[in-house]
Design a protein around this nucleic acid. Structure first.
Lengths: 214, 214, 214, 214
DNA sequence: AATGAATGAGAATTCATTCAT
DNA sequence: CATGAATGAATTCTCATTCAT
């Protein structure tokens, strides 16, 4: 996995994965499960082929390289992750339909729901992510550029409304991001939960809004 | 890495690694650096040998297997992590010398200092940890048994003193653990920072104690 | 390419290749170009299919095996090479219409023209030829039987006329063959020229007839 | 065989091949024989390993890649080919010890002797050479720069002495090179002779000096 | 204690060929 | 006729591990 021109590769790969044969789907399915469980490096294409009931050559006919198979898993996940679903939340808050607390609650619920549905792919992604400096260098700035400005607006509005403290926006963002990321990573990547109940969500919302001090 | 009787192996390995020759030290040094950077699976013993200026055989003379080399890195780290240094913090709080907030601050500072000093070993550990179900099954209960009761005491005292909210101890523990783990993981495993300044620590302390709500 | 009963196969293949569909022609075209450039072994049928804008199966529908595709290229070339066009030259000389020198000049021009037109196929042929002992064993005697007797006649006539030295015919043949083969191989297979100008032809004719001594 | 920085690689490879183990020698021996017979592309490393009585891994331990094994064969051959032995011939002629004809005779004998001794390596080299445009682009200029100037001196001296015709030096060089190359290629690469007897050499010398005309 | 040559079991990948549509 | 998904054997290469010195 030498060069990682993510955005260049997306086009390439998504094109190929338009019309999927049943075997192709099965390969992807098996790859997701095994990559999620044992990680990309510790899974052999022979193993995937066997579990998918397919000849090893078939994998390479469709995906060219093992790495492309990984990208075929990760790319749609990354695209979905930046989906417009999140946008609605921002709009709702800005339209004064919901409080900031409710916004955080909805954001958390939305992200948790997304990860619950895509738990395995998230694991595939996360396990690779912490290894690949290039991946980080491409994705972290990308998300910062996309997510941070949106969040900034929301935070400023909430501050004007007097809902949250008056610290610099970047610090607030940082706190929220750390808490949510920490929550999602510990739950899905470390504790391997399958879903999160509403109580727990409520606790995190409380934590973000009020902490544990009296 | 088939069976993982961690506690059984610790004795075995720590014995061996008592008297270290210079070559042995060099091997360990190089192994830590490369495992941290590229992960255990993606590092070959040949590479370690070359970087350590040692013959391939030498690694196996000392560590027997590649996996044992990994354990020789992780075991002392895990032992240190549960070291008595942490105990002092608890004592201090319980002796009413410090507030709960100060306790959290000190706890954070202590853990951050520890990880800053052992950043690479932490990465080696963390990158393996998220893969190995066996590791998790051994270590998570182990820490819960050790850390949770201590924390419980502290929390109860703080609650009595009226410093923190009256939710169930387990929920409080959860919140604290999530926030601290989230903070440490995002900083050291994702953002690859080398150290954390006091401002940032203060923010997290504030977050834990008061959240971001007004 | 196991057994190489060339003459037996010629009939088989030439029959099949009588009525060529456009796709078939395109396959042949692409195969010639890529075989010439990279050699038979280093060209995959997948590559040919892609470059020809044809499905992989189509190649095998028409040519059965990759080897047959090679033969379909080489066989017509070999047939043309022994064509009656050469015969005229012999007749001309024997009819005293031209000198031996002119005969050599015309022979050279004719062969150069043929190879210029079929440069790629010649390369395909030559690159395989030097590998395949079987090919050599079939073709070298074949050409000796066909070409040598004709040349013998010509040489004897020229010797009678006093145009060339009185060494044994076989030695003269050898010298001519070596020089012409050497010229053609160095130009077309090594230096990759596209054509040869008349000056250069004249030099070779001079070389064959008079050498470089004074 | 993507990039071919021949001169850069020579250093690398010759270093490695200093101290050869018996197995390493055997691998080289077998590789030469099989590459010569069937060509580089048509020989698998598995086959070489088997014939050499060695594990396949051993080949890669020593040579890294199959291509490096090829270079380990070709590089010493190319270095020897440009050896100072040839220089003596030039000196002899220029010291008026020998005639130009004798120079050509000695040159031919020397080259034939060299190729007879290294016939298989020559075949390995030649078979690759005609495929690899990069090899040609590096070696042809290299030899032109080294050989042509030396030859030029010799030819000019011979012309002054009145031993050879007064055509431009480049044309004379061309004629000599074509004849000698043609001779060597047809004999060693096409007819697969093991050695060349003196009669045949004498014929070629005659051809070069006097041609076949009367 | 240290070396490094040698191993052989896999790993990823290629490729000619088949076959159902 | 033509397709292209699927195959599986072969190929190059990797790597932890062993062992004679």
């Amino acid at each position: 996995m030498s060069s990682f021109n993510l955005l260049d590769r997306i086009a390439e790969i998504t094109k190929k994965s338009e019309k999927q044969t049943p075997k192709q789907k099965k390969i992807l399915e098996v790859a997701i499960t095994t990559f999620a469980e044992k990680g990309y490096s510790n899974t052999s294409t022979a193993e995937i082929a066997k579990l998918a009931g397919v000849a090893e050559g078939t994998i390479f006919k469709h995906y060219g390289t093992k790495e492309n198979l990984l990208l075929a898993i990760m790319v749609p996940f990354l695209k979905d992750n930046t989906s417009s679903l999140v946008d609605e939340l921002f709009t709702e808050l800005m339209d004064e339909k919901i409080s900031f607390k409710q916004f955080i609650r909805n954001l958390l619920k939305n992200r948790i729901e997304f990860l619950s549905k895509n738990k395995e792919i998230f694991l595939v992604f996360f396990k690779e992510f912490i290894y690949k400096e290039e991946l980080k260098k491409e994705l972290i700035p990308y998300f910062l550029e996309k997510a941070a400005p949106r969040l900034k607006e929301v935070i400023e509005i909430a501050q004007k409304r007097g809902e949250i403290i008056d610290k610099p926006v970047i610090q607030i963002t940082n706190m929220i991001a750390t808490t949510i990321a920490g929550f999602l990573i510990t739950r899905f990547a470390i504790l391997n939960v399958d879903s999160v109940n509403d109580n727990e969500i409520e606790e995190i919302v409380h934590l973000i809004m009020h902490g544990i001090g009296k």
